[in-house]
Design a protein around this nucleic acid. Structure first.
Lengths: 208, 208
DNA sequence: TTCATCACATACAGTCTGTATGTAAGCGCA
DNA sequence: TGCGCTTACATACAGACTGTATGTGATGAA
């Protein structure tokens, strides 16, 4: 049998160290904040030295980006679990919304993804992360709802971004002590308000 | 006549120095970012020393807070100018929205108020600033619209916050190159969607 | 006029970030 | 199986920044 900690392939070492660093950084970034967390503290928590950090990541920002990407993926996974494509659009939207708000209750996640993320990486980079994960299912849900005529046709990118922004703010407000029911009610009202109005002349040009 | 720079009352000196510091900080915070701007640079721009800064402000954050407060007030003033209370609620909302988006086009304002602000001061402190300035008119407009039965009754705090979040994100997206028309259209659709559906029994209990 | 206070300027201590350099272990190759 | 190159770090260093402590001249009240 081989020794306890000897004989590790370089690939394994790299993977383990990177993962340790990301885990340690995630812990501190969520407990405190990006600005209040120093690299000496991160590497101490990870059990390595700053040399390792700067070997694997270009700088502190790059490490933060890796953490943010992982958190965004985790949130997206929770949403996809709760809102399978078998649901009709409106139910999927509701289930997805609730799953999102529930996922964002994990301590420190809102600050990491919604406050520090945009400030540290910029909105553009943060949008890229969101589009790779969370926003994707939202946009697909909206497109499906439009196709099913459940909501009026609107520019998809803009609609996705603005609804996502409302969800984000709701998550922040709830964490700050706001009434979850209030925010949920408003979110529902906002999305339901997008339903095409059936009582006005029922789209004569369209049905003709 | 009195000398050029001699004979100034302490109150005048304080006011002038504080104002110089805020102006210099605003310039740099909007050109770069909070994190990328050091206090040595700020005081150089203001023509004073770091001693003056730390005499008037507890720390760099406090200076930032003063700048954010001023910017928020400036934005609110532009909105109030464009949306006088003489307008009917819906027109006031539209005029206010457009004024907000226009005001946020001033370079660096979105980053200062929408990215750095929440990250540096926290959402709670930023909400306090918003409520003292911009959000106030929005909330009043929404309350008026509810009273006029122009929109359905919803929790006011939550509705204000979520609509404001959508406006904020729109401002960021437009600055990042997004289509202003698209975002405007979605914002209008979101607010118009809040109109009560009139074919349902028109509030009989109330009119009785 | 005198003395306390104010509005700064200067000097200092501690910490952090990023880089440059050194080293031992892995790894392709003859 | 030995040899040289590269990888994965650890250590040392330079520069910058933040906040504080101290010193000083102008101001203002008594």
């Amino acid at each position: 049998m081989q020794q306890e900690s000897g004989r590790r392939s370089n690939r394994d070492r790299t993977e383990a160290t990177r993962s340790d660093l990301i885990r340690a950084a995630r812990k501190l970034f969520t407990e405190k904040s990006y600005a209040e967390t120093g690299t000496p503290e991160i590497v101490a928590e990870a059990g390595v030295t700053r040399g390792a950090l700067y070997h694997h990541f270009a700088d502190k920002q790059a490490l933060f980006a890796a953490v943010a990407e992982q958190e965004a993926a985790a949130v997206a996974a929770e949403i996809d679990d709760a809102a399978p494509p078998s649901l009709v659009p409106r139910d999927a939207l509701i289930a997805g919304s609730d799953a999102y708000l529930a996922a964002m209750r994990l301590p420190g996640r809102t600050r990491l993804l919604l406050l520090d993320g945009p400030a540290v990486l910029g909105r553009v980079a943060m949008d890229a992360i969101d589009n790779r994960h969370g926003n994707r299912s939202l946009r697909e849900g909206l497109v499906a709802a439009m196709r099913a005529q459940a909501i009026t046709r609107l520019p998809v990118e803009a609609l996705t971004a603005l609804l996502a922004a409302a969800f984000d703010r709701a998550a922040l407000a709830i964490e700050a002590g706001g009434s979850a029911e209030d925010y949920r009610a408003v979110l529902m009202a906002l999305t339901d308000g997008l339903a095409p109005v059936p009582h006005r002349a029922p789209a004569p040009a369209r049905t003709r």
